[in-house]
Design a protein around this nucleic acid. Structure first.
Lengths: 226, 226
DNA sequence: AAATATTTTAATCATTTGATTAATTTTTAA
DNA sequence: TTAAAAATTAATCAAATGATTAAAATATTT
């Protein structure tokens, strides 16, 4: 039933109904999640009649899958080229990744919880469809990581490194409301701090790589080291 | 029809109806979230009549608030004593925190997403009620942190440290399904790796504190570091 | 035991919600 | 211009869902 839309010139003088629905659904789903989202919310947000949602996308679930897959691709697939580039070293890859995710998540701070909630609700589906996740263990990145750990005589399981890198890049946006409550109420200031992390994260991760057990200057009275 | 027979299973006939409902609701809410949870799910899980849920807790929302507040308290309030103990140094506090959250989250790996989703859905309510969050800026921990940064001549904004520490402790459980897909399918192995982090996290965080710009051993060609 | 209070149950209510339908308007094609 | 196709709308449906009710069962008190 759907017709081809006329490719209207350069700028979008007017969004097509389909585009309006997708844009609205993206906003609402991302903020409220799948279950809390009502198709009527989306219709209102898009300024269209409720029936058009089903007319164009069959069902709420189909629409959600479309958006989730697009979001997840943007989140995971986009880094495939970085991870598998043989011409860059590990250090450079970390810098590229930190830069990429910082830029992405400053624009889309709700992305992480949106995707992580979906993984929680439906662990197998998303992970199964995302080759980027499955291919990571065989990536150039992983090979370089293992080599570097070996060189440093660092017994660390590679998973720790991957978790830490993801953590430092993604988690700040997950706890953004809390951090802003505690440290700054200013949106721009928060963004500035996030930009700083582009440079910090690779440095911090070098500490993880190098296995430098930096001890505190002051002699400590440890008690419960297992 | 259903008498209070001992239906072979985890349900204890010892538990009161109220306790059974709370336990069941905790399980279901934690896994599925508020909106996706049906009161009938909880009733079935608890092995009780649907009406009893409203009889004891008035409404789904009231029951949720009870559980959410209890969960959040366990997550945040429990560390208040650690953060405000003047007799332990920063290093010890990090070790205690890493130990505390590791033990807690190995038992309750779904906690983080549960709480973070609530913060996403209702940013003000939870944060407003949790004094632990509001009091953190005035804690002994924060004072010690700032002092340590100053001593190390480290210009790092304290927020970065707090974010990083939380990230390293909490995020692994948020991405657990993904990590297990990539690195190990063995639940026990994953737990072992998480236990390792008890010791690693304070070490890694010392790197963040000390402002050691650990450069990669291999000489880098391009230097974009300031 | 009888009376009273509490707990539990089955049935049902009132909304909400995703989806459909049939009619109407707008666009496209002939 | 006119007929067919596509898009849009208002109305409505059926199922799901949170909540309530009145009666029955059980426990407690007198």
């Amino acid at each position: 039933m759907q017709s081809k839309k006329k490719t209207a010139g350069a700028k979008q003088t007017k969004l097509s109904t389909e585009q309006k629905i997708i844009a609205a659904a993206k906003r609402v789903f991302t903020i409220k999640g799948y279950s809390a989202t009502r198709t009527r919310d989306i219709a209102t947000e898009a300024g269209i009649n409720l029936a058009l949602l089903n007319y164009y996308f069959r069902s709420k679930e189909k629409l959600f899958e479309l958006i989730m897959f697009e979001s997840a691709s943007r989140f995971f697939l986009s880094i495939k080229s970085i991870l598998n580039d043989p011409s860059t070293d590990l250090q450079t890859k970390m810098e590229l990744l930190a830069g990429h995710y910082t830029d992405l998540l400053i624009q889309e701070p709700n992305f992480p919880i949106f995707i992580l909630s979906e993984i929680q609700a439906n662990p197998q589906r998303l992970i199964r469809e995302l080759e980027a996740i499955q291919q990571l263990p065989q990536s150039v990145f992983m090979a370089q990581l293992k080599k570097e750990l070996k060189k440093n005589n660092n017994k660390l399981h590679p998973m720790h490194f991957v978790i830490n890198l993801m953590s430092l890049m993604v988690f700040p946006y997950v706890v953004k409301p809390m951090m802003m409550r505690m440290f700054t109420r200013d949106e721009n200031h928060f963004t500035t701090l996030m930009m700083e992390r582009k440079n910090y994260i690779p440095i911090w991760m070098n500490g993880v790589l190098s296995h430098s057990e930096v001890k505190p200057k002051k002699a400590k009275k440890h008690a419960q080291m297992v």
